[in-house]
Design a protein around this nucleic acid. Sequence first.
DNA 1: GACAAGATAGAACGATCGGTCTACCTGAGT
DNA 2: ACTCAGGTAGACCGATCGTTCTATCTTGTC
Lengths: 192, 192
Amino acid sequence: MSEARARLLRTATELFYAEGIHAVGVDRVIASAQVTRATMYRHFPSKDDLVVAYLTQADEAIRARTVAVRAEDATPEDVVRAVGRQIAEDIQREGFRGCAFLNAAAEYPDPAHPVHRAVLKHRQWFLATVTELFADAGETDPEPAARHFVMLRDGAMAAGCLTDPKPIRDTFLLGIEGLLKYRNRGRPKPDG
Amino acid sequence: MSEARARLLRTATELFYAEGIHAVGVDRVIASAQVTRATMYRHFPSKDDLVVAYLTQADEAIRARTVAVRAEDATPEDVVRAVGRQIAEDIQREGFRGCAFLNAAAEYPDPAHPVHRAVLKHRQWFLATVTELFADAGETDPEPAARHFVMLRDGAMAAGCLTDPKPIRDTFLLGIEGLLKYRNRGRPKPDG
DNA sequence: GACAAGATAGAACGATCGGTCTACCTGAGT
DNA sequence: ACTCAGGTAGACCGATCGTTCTATCTTGTC
């Protein structure tokens, strides 16, 4: 990855996330990245490609940190908690502006559009992953629990940038704890 | 309200909601509403004013239907359920494209912007109203329950237009039932 | 020393953006 | 009869949109 490309992607991420995608023109991006128009169009044939690259990068980062948390030596329940804690941290991080994917979907409603598809791809992965997590935790029917988790996450991410993030964060973490408490556990695992 | 103004507002609602706000220019709106440029700018001094009017109208519609459901002769718990059912119906309605307010907030992140403020105003009212509903239902600490309700709503509304709405709807309604079941009830009301 | 990749700089494209303007018509109220 | 709000029609504004282009320079690598 060339220096210019990296700068381009970093700047695009900052601007698109902070201000919205349609609100930021290519001129803004190239000016902030200190790159020429020609350079940008060499690396990203169109603005849409840049947007997809922005979301793909975000997707990869989240996957990586999820892999990392699963690699730690923790009980399955604590892995769920850890993923929840990551989300809680996101929400109270400075400059938090909601979920990059939900925000992008709001701007690209057409399901056939590459940007929209990138959003769906990330969300499919996330739901599948959380379902695995609940299955690991001995949930007899993990999908409903995972869907509940994702719903709380989406709500927390959507609301966390609209008011004081603290109560949102607390509500979210409490919701996750409730989910872990009142769930349908299967036969406890031999080592659990 | 003049005929032209009504047509303008109706068209704006359809287009902004379906395609996003920045994605729809004034030209599109006036063409679809079969109105002249001058007429539009007579009623709405700027596009922002039109957008705010669109959200204000949506806000009023939701307030009205909430008032209606509270006026019915139902137990406080059933009022909560009824509000939840309204949201569930929204989600599976054809042409559902998520929460108009969350979508707008994604496009207008600046908290000082009139459009963003219209979003916040609606959300403040909604949280306060749901808090009242839980208080009516005898919740000793209604705000956390209301926040939980709103979080599920936001998550359901955000996700309901990205995949098959049915499982989202079911997850949401199940979450609301769980919320009503495992809550902190105060001394039961004399008539309950 | 040749060559190609990647960068620079900047002009230019047509389309669309939100918004202003002039000019004329119509119908209801006083 | 007069006024005036509300409507039509359409030219026009500067700015910005995403995109393409030519032309030159640097920096390895073969």
